[in-house]
Every structure is written in structure tokens, then in C-alpha cells.
Design a protein around this nucleic acid. Sequence first.
RNA 1: GCGUCUGUAGCUCAGCUGGAUAGAGCGUUCGCCUUCUAAGCGAAAUGUCGAGGGUUCGAAUCCCCCCAGGCGUACCA
Length: 601
Amino acid sequence: MLKQECLELLRQGLNKAIDTGECGGLTKTDIPELKAEIPKNREYGDLSINISCLCRYTGKSPLETAKSIVKYIGEGEGCEKEVEKFKIKIAGGFINFKIKTESLNREMNSVIEEILKTKTEYGKNNEGNGERIILEYVSANPTGPFHIGHGRWAALGSTLANVLKFSGYEVYQEYYVNDAGNQINNLGRSLYIRVLQQLGINAEFPETDTKTKSYYTGEYLTDCAKSFIEQNPQVAEEIRTKQCEEADEKTHKQLCEFAKTYILTGQKMLLEKFRVHFDNFYFETSLHERGDVQSCLNKLQAKGMLYEKENALWFKSSLYGDDEDRVIKKTDGSYTYLTADIAYHYDKLRRGFSKIINIWGADHHGYIPRMRAAIESFGYPADVLVVLLGQLVNLSMNGEQVRMGKRTKMVTLRDLIEEVGIDATRYWMIMRDIDNTLEFDIDLAKSKSDENPVFYVQYAHARACSIMRNAVTERQDTINKVTLPKIFEKSELESYLNNISQNSLDILWKDEQEAIEFRTIIRKLSEYKEVILTSAKKYSPYLITNYLKELAAVFHKFYAQTRILSEDKELTKAKLAIIKSVIYIIKSGLEIIGVNAPEKM
RNA sequence: GCGUCUGUAGCUCAGCUGGAUAGAGCGUUCGCCUUCUAAGCGAAAUGUCGAGGGUUCGAAUCCCCCCAGGCGUACCA
């Protein structure tokens, strides 16, 4: 890599300058990490190293410091020097490297060669070195359909899993099902009302103002009630004859179980459809059944992390930075949500994952300190737990905000997917940083125009594919009304691309004007590696959508100004090598974010 | 009150591990289809980077404070 070579040259110069005492107080140990970057303004050169940060040690101005370093590099005088591959020029505190054309072209050739050899695997790296990560996301309650926010976590989580895997992590995707607690009782009671209604009995949801007893009044339980009656005719008959205000214990249990399964099944189907795959669905009830919750409490007890107060059992989370201690066992003897969740996270640790990543909605942020406290109580470092807090989604339609309430009529994820499609929904859900509230404009996401980044990127892919097709098929010349022969036999072209040699690409650099265009697009392609890496390191899938949009823009521009297919077969082949590379990278990027890469549009 | 996220062009947002003149897209105006998809390309205009301090050779970027908005602040899950 030329970047490393620049840095190496600089290091050599710097060391000599230090040895000869020209760098004032700068010693070899306090040299900060220097970076070679592509300058925004390309007139400065191809790569640039900023050495201004050394000035505090050297006691000289940036320019003087740069001069004393460059003095010991290569041939030439003063501010302009030359080495085998670069021309070096000082500008203020910047040392700029202009890569000599021949080296540059060779670098470009090698990028294309690597892409064509690795195909959609280009950019794969081993940053993670097999580290085992458990990624938990969505984990919606089995009490209703997914709302838009769940869609964001689903898209984000599945993409993150893909990026991390691409970067050498081993990722286990898990979904936690909160199938215990009051909410399930509420669900069962709500289903009972719907069943009564379906049986033609006059029943309404009671007005409630207590926090522990409420109802899910959404329409979705109506369908659930229908299938309950269908599948449990005797029970339905009993209910009809008794017409009680509330179901008896046994029936209630049955209703709870039915509703839970019904909704969960629907959720699973929707996730699959949305291209989100979980390795495991983890049930809260299983924790209770195995006694894991109790044994986890024993563990905390043994560590002196629990105490009794006001007839409840408390967890000393404030010992580890939480604002206050938290109730672990209520006065009525039941556990809080936190209790089971601590047991769940303890289980994650026990299963041997070295990193626990959770995607939670921003409304759960207050929950982080107590969870972290639990992790630390068990003797694990606090940073094994990474919580990615996702800001919520604002939906707008016809210029109006659509609020998403949970228990009233709302726009669900299913509605959204039906309206705008899976590709657009996924793309839109991840294209903003997780820290930003997402403005989801349904009309825009639906539009098949340049306003919509999804189509812009997909269109670039389809366009590129189209060129590849045209290269190996006969075409109609509409003006002269003749059939143009195919330029290549399919096998001929494929064999060329699959066994690419760098020499065959040298033809690209003959025409100076075109060479500039080729370099622009190849440089963009080579950025993909870094985008993947940063995206994985920062847990930021949106960087990939940003990149894809930029790559698509570069390609569209390239397409407009450069003719690919021509009589010159050798040149055409080499150009097609670039086009094929573009296809691989876009395809790879879209695959990672779970969006289709259509070959025709 | 406390915690947390956000505040960059009319709109939606990049840039925020500090660096050389702050970038896109949309919208506006004007161009480009006689050979590879015009779902595209080109040109023009647009900014007290929320305000104020500080650190630094250098700040949209780091620190402090203030202002505005979202979210949270349960023995709910």
C-alpha cells in the first residue's frame, strides 16, 4: 500500500532529523501517530501527511518542522523532493505526496485485480479475529404487532450482524421473548373480550387507570380471537354459555398461551420476510422454569448485592454507578422485569460470549446503568456490555406526522413494508446514524426517482449489469436497422475477468483524460475496505449506505462521460473489468444491508 | 430537577479519533437522449456550522456554560 510507504518515508526522515538534533525537544518516543490521508483538494497531491502536531515538541513553526524532516528524504532541494514513487512537496505543515503516474497506475491495476479475484468478498477482513459476540435486538413483547421502531432495530441489527461477520467476528443473533409477567395476563384478558365480541356477546374493554391491569385494544386481537374460536370450539362454547365478565383461571391461561403463540408466530414470519434471521429465540419463561432466576439471585445474595427494605428485595446497583438501588422482588413476591433480565444476561455471559451487544430503543436508556451494575456484580468488566441506543422513528405521510401509539390504531411495520417494499424500508431504516431520530418520509421512500437513494444505488447496479449483458449479446442498431454482432463470446469475457492480469489493464492508462476518470472510480472502489472496517468498529451500518450512494454517484457520472463498449476489444475488456468491479462492490454492500441488487430495472 | 440524544444551506442529512477554501441530495434556474437503462449527467445560487466562553499554531469537530427540541426518570415490561 502506498499509504504505508509514505509513512515509512516520513518516519525515516523524521528519525534522521531527530538524530541530527534538528527537531528541538522532539524525541522518538513522543512522536504521535501520523496519518497519510487523501486531501480534500486534490491539487495538493494524492496523499498528505500533517506534521503540525509535532510542533509543540520541536518548538518550530509547522513549515520549518516539515522542512527539517523532508531534508532527509529523497533527492532534490528545499521544499520539493523526489523519490522512486513520489514527488514530495511541503505546504505549511503538510507534507504532500504526489504519486508518480506509473506507481499510481500499478496501484489502480492491483485494486481491480483484487476485486475481480475476491469478488463480493472484497473488503472481508479479520478485525474480529473470531471474537464471539451475542447480538440481541428487536426483542419486542409478544403482545402486539411490530411498530415502526422495531423495524429500525431489525434492519439495523441484521445489518450490524452482517458487517461484523464480514469483519471476522462470530455473531450470534438472539431475540428475547418477554413471555412472562403481567403483560401476558393483560393480553389474555384482552383476548377474552375479543372472543366474547366474536361470539356475538356484548363486551367492551373496561376503562382502566391502574398500571397493573390494562388492555390491548388494538384490532389485531380480533383475528386472533377468530382463530381461537375456530381451534377451540368447546372452550368457545363454554364461554358463550357462561358469559362471565372474566374468564376462569384455566381458560385464562389457555387464552394467554394462545395469544402469545399467535402473535409470536406472526412476528417470526414478518422478520423472515424482512430478511432478519435470528439464531435463537430465548424465552423469559424458560429462565423461570429452569430456576435460573433464583440461582442468579442466590449468586447476587452471596456477593452481598441484595438487601431487604420495605418488604421488598433490592439490588445495590448504586454501588456500580446507578442513580439508586432497584427492586428485584416486589412486595407481592413476584420479580420485576429487571430480575429476569439480569438472569438472562448472566446466562449470556455463561455461554461464553466476550461481548454482549444490545440494541435498545432510546426510551430504555435509563436501564443501562442497572444492567451494567449487574454485569459488574458478577465480576465482568463493564464494557463487555455494549448497548446501542436507537433513537425513535418519525413517520410522515402526505407531509403529515403519523404518531405510533402501541395500543391504539397505528402504522405497523407490516403496513410500512406493504406500502414501500422491503428494499426501501430496510435501506431507509439504516441510512441514518442510530443516534439520530429518523425522519421516515413514506412518500419519498416509495418514489422511484432520484429523490430516493435506494433506487439510485440499485439503478447503478442495474446499469452496470446492463453493460455487461450488452457486451456479450447481439444488439439492434435502430438507425441503420442492422444487427450488431456481439463483441465478446460470454465465455471469452468471463475467462478474461476471472483470470485477470494486471498487464492487460495497462491499456487503461493510455489516454490521459480517460485515465483520470478511471482513477476516480477505482479510488472510490478501494475505499470500500475502510468503510466496512469503520462500520464494524463503530457499529455504524449507516456508513455503508452513505458509501453506496457515493459510489453510485461516481459510477453514474463515469457512465455519462465514458463510453465502455467499442471496437477496441482490448480496451473494452479492461473497461469492463472496472464495470464488473463496480458490480461486485455494490452487490456486496447491498447484500450486507439486506437489500436486493437487481440486474435489470 | 437529573440523565440522555439532537441542533450544519429553504427541507432531509454527511463531515465531529481537531487541520489547508464547510459538503451531498431534494427543492429553484438553465442545459444534455443519432449506438452501453435520462430511475441518469452537467452548470448556476444557497451557510452568524443554535448562542457565548475556553484549550490549541489551528475548532463544525475537544472542554465549560447557556438556549431550543426529542426521549427517559415505576415494586410496567
